[in-house]
Structure formats: C-alpha cells, structure tokens
Design a protein around this nucleic acid. Structure first.
Lengths: 130, 130, 130, 130
DNA sequence: GTGGTCTAGACCACG
DNA sequence: GTGGTCTAGACCACC
C-alpha cells in the first residue's frame, strides 16, 4: 500500500495521508491524471475509518492537487507535481524551525542545540538507512 | 518576566511554562527553596488565563519539582536541580527524533534531510545569537 | 452531434443530455416518430460512459417523451412536442429562482442583485451570440 | 441567530453556513477579532449536527478568514473583511454565469433568456423586499 | 464501483 | 466552556 501511517504519532492520521500523498506526487510515484487509491481501498488497507481518508482527500482537493473524475475517483492534477515539489521540504523545514525556536526560548545554548541535533541526525539516518 | 511564551506555537501554553520552569531550575536561575513567580503574577505579565498557569504549576508539583509553602506559594524542591538537568535535552531530543521519523516516512531522502537540517540549524543559530 | 455537454459543469451529464433532448424535441429538431441517436453513438461521440446515456434515455422513457421501437431504438412520442414545449423555460426559470433565493438569504441587497444580473446577462448574451 | 439555512436547498448546509459567514464578515456584522458563534451554539439553534458546522468553520479557517483562539473559539481575522468583500458577489455572479451557459447550450434563444430573467428578477425582488 | 453529505456519539486538549 | 479528531453507519448521486 502507498501510505504508511503511525496511529500513535501526534500528527493526525488524515494529515499524514495528506502529506504523504503530496510527497508521492512530488516523487512521481503518482503521475498526473492517474487515479489515486480510492477512499475505501485506503481505509481497508490501513484499517481506519473511511471518513479519515475522506478528510485527507478533501484537503488535497481544496488545494487543487487532485480533481474528481465523476464516478471513477480522484486523479492527480496536471500542475500538481510542481506544486508538491515546492512543498516537499517546506513542511519539514518549517517544523524544524519551530522546534529550534522553542529550544532557544527554553534557554538551551547554541552549543547544546548543535550537538544534540548533529548527534541525533547521524545516529537516526544511520539506523534507518543502514 | 521569567517566561517567554508564544501563544501561536502549537505547543500548549501550559507546557511551554512547565518546560521553561524546569530549564530555569536546571540553570540555577531558580534556586532550591526559592519561591517561583505566583500564578497571578505570571498570568498578568503574559496576559493569559490564570488557569493555564495553574495547570503548568500543577504538573510541576506532581513531578515533585516544586512544593507548596502554605500561604506563600510554590518553592523549588531540594533535589529538583539534578532531576531537571537530566530532562534538559531530552524534550528537545525526543521531539527532533519524532520529526526525523516523520520525514523518513514521508520519503525524504537522507541527503535532503541532512542538507535541510544543517542549513536551517546554522542559519537559525546565527540569526538568533548574533 | 446533437448534444453538447460540459463534463465539468455541476449538472450531471445524464441530466444535461436529458434536458437537451427535450429542448430538441420542443424545437422540432427531433420530429415525432423519428429515432433519436443510439446510446452507443452518443457515448462514443461524447467520449462518456454508455451507462450515462442509458440513464438519460431511461428518464425520457419514464416521462413518455420517447418510446422504444423493438430492435431499432428509441423514437420521439407523438404528444412529446407539446409537453416539452411546456417544460422549455421552466427548468431555467426555477433554477434562476433558487439562485435568487440564496442570494437574498446571503444578504445581498436588491440593488447588488439587480446590477449583477443585468450586467452579466447582457455581457454573456453579447459574447455568446456575437 | 446569524445564519439562515434551507435544508432542502441543493447547496449543502455546510456551504450555506460558510458563505453566509463570509457575507456577514463582508457586511461588518462580524467584526475583526470578534468571536463567531460557537459550533455548539449554531448547531443547537439550527437543529443540525455539530459536525456540519465544524465542516463549515474548518473551511473558513483553511481560507484564513477566521483563526482559533485557544479555549475560547474562532475569531474573525484582521484582513478577512477585505477578502470577503471581494468574494461577495463573485459567488452569485459565477453561478449565474453557469446558469446562463447551460441555458445557451440547451438552445434557449437570447430573447427567451432575457425575458425570463428580467421577469423573474423583478417579480422575486418585489415579493421578497416588499 | 466511486466520492459527497449528514447524523450520532465518543474522547481529547485547552483555558 | 471551546474546537479537533476519529469512529460508525446511513443515504445519496454518479458512472
């Protein structure tokens, strides 16, 4: 299945789906005019309520990333790839920035922050991409 | 005022106060047996609901970091400094780890993650500690 | 081809076909006892699902506007012309009325409504019948 | 109560609320930084399911027309008035245009269209604003 | 089969 | 008290 969700993550499930869909489009894994997996299919595969998927797909539609094909499903918009590409890192980047801001407000020193980030980063990447 | 909060941050206000109090204790800015600022004082200074401060202070009490002094307020516990020191980086570290996890689930490549983190890190530290 | 549909319009495709068929009959473009275009022909010409055409033709049959000719298709009923004539403007009229109702509920003033309608009306007619 | 809905209208209830909220903001009936009626309040007053109101309010938030005030409700954004003003007539205008387009596709003549619109317009305005 | 809307009710976080 | 999320299930329109 396309989507990998973590029901225990603080990020809402619908948002995880929403973001991953955009990433898949950016990657080209979902091509323009191609139908994305149906609401029911995703709900079944992830063992979640269809409404949760509906919510994610509605947000994608509101952004113009996908468009409805009557009676068939939702398809990737022509111009979606470029737009999703632009969003690609900005999610991650802005969340990382917020994290740094709060660390600074909490009086962590630049050295502490830098050391923690660099250590954790390499350790995690090593472990997850070993 | 001791605390610097950001009402627009996704982190609840009460948690921002809770964390910063612990950091201040770890730093020694709030010494053992010293009274911490009163609920009213904090609420007025930050222009927030007193209940929010109450909630933060309750969490601190539940952890044994502060203890009530009848009629006078809340004071820093004797053994609090050591305990807060241990927590010092763990908040930041664990949140950064969750962020990395989601980035990986979202199919960002190690290179993209590393580049984004390093760039943003230095840029932010430079700007905020210039 | 007789029918002109807009797959992006909010009006269902089958209803667009249904209405246009009735208008064509009212106009005399489709005469009594004349065969209307076959389901396959229409579906192919408009590049739509044959079931959609079937649905439109079923509605026409249910109203008695067309009748089946075994092995040949659907033909226009004798008394259809008069009946279609009566429906001619009522679709448009009733939809326009609903539109006005919602505009009023949305607090648009009579002046705003009148001005918008008159301007748009003349502009559109001019452009489309130039 | 602020909102007037028609449960029998083809327009979804949540969209009726969404639109009327924008109109009220454009009118100044809902001022910047003022709290809009709560989800529960609206649901009770209109005798509809709170989720339906939630849906409308979420759309307003996504557009940046209202913003959440933690624990208190949703407030009108500073720049919302201008934006809503711009949208004010465009809903009505674009729907009217779609209606005209379909009338033309249905082979109504310019004269028929003009006569129907003008008659219905004056009759409705007279009746509703008598 | 598809998505869209609505209802009903639960639980949570926040102030 | 507020909004946010999720579940469960119904009914509809469309193809």
């Amino acid at each position: 299945m396309f989507f990998q969700i973590d029901v225990n993550a603080p990020t809402p499930i619908y948002e995880q789906i929403y973001r991953q869909a955009k990433f898949l489009i950016a990657n080209g894994a979902l091509a323009p005019d191609e139908l994305i997996p149906s609401v029911r299919e995703v709900a079944r595969a992830l063992a979640i309520n269809p409404q949760t998927v509906v919510r994610a797909y509605r947000d994608l539609q509101n952004e113009g990333v996908v468009y409805p094909v009557r009676g068939r499903g939702l398809a990737v918009a022509e111009n979606a790839k470029k737009r999703c590409r632009d969003d690609r890192l900005s999610f991650f980047e802005s969340e990382f920035e917020r994290l740094l801001d709060e660390a600074i407000r909490s009086r962590l020193t630049p050295e502490e922050i830098r050391k923690t980030v660099l250590t954790k980063l390499e350790k995690t990447l090593k472990k997850r991409f070993a």
